[in-house]
Amino acid sequence: MTGALLTAEGLDLHFGAIPALVDVAIGVAEGEVVAIVGESGSGKTTLLRVLSGQMAPDAGTVRWLGQDVHAMGEAARRRLMRTDWGFVHQNPRDGLRLNVSAGGNVGERLMAVGARHYGNIRAQALEWLAKVEVDAARIDDLPRTFSGGMQQRLQIARTLVTRPRLVFMDEPTGGLDVSVQARLLDLIRGLSRELGLSVLIVTHDIAAARLLADRILVMRRGRVVEQGLTDRVLDDPQHPYTQLLVSSVLAA
């Protein structure tokens, strides 16, 4: 595909006898939001981990701008992880440093790529806290004093501060109550449009996928059973499993 940032072909991964990924291919274009949906154990998170270089596949390749992600050294991969890429964990405690203030959390990626001016780091931290709607007065508070929704927004600010081109999100709204989920989704949608971000988001929430994604991949038992534009897949599901998934969404 043309203009693709990240492409993967023929990914296979087995955990013993259990197939986690079977011949998976995926591409993410510049500025595109792609959702991976499926039930628990369908291989969504594994796929995200393989695509972001945290886990090696048994077969297949992942390419970032044409470069093989799993063939590059760990140093190069880490550099990618703190510059062009971002990773938002399901549990904000995995992505934040809980004993470091909110400002320090946002500033860490800046300092990791060489920012050495305290005033500038501080100004950028404040700017990003405002963008994710965290009160500026809380910049020196520890994240453990924040609510779950605030922690998740802080994690997003910390990830986006270095302006990555591609952000991996692993169920970013999981574990939050419904009204907080809605605000967070709205925030992610606004920021990804504003910054022209590419986002690869794993979710089991079909409604979230419809709200955010341009394209959807439906996974089941390690296979991509259906993929296409979000509206097409959700309004006219072809595969029986997708039909089941769409019809099982509760209408409020």
Binding site: E74, G104, E108, R109, D140
Partner: peptide, 17 residues
């Protein structure tokens, strides 16, 4: 990997507090 951002975070925290 000469990944020393963490040490600067510590110094940042000192200045902030």
């Amino acid at each position: 990997l000469a990944d020393y951002g963490l040490m600067h975070v510590r110094l940042y925290e000192d200045i902030a507090r």
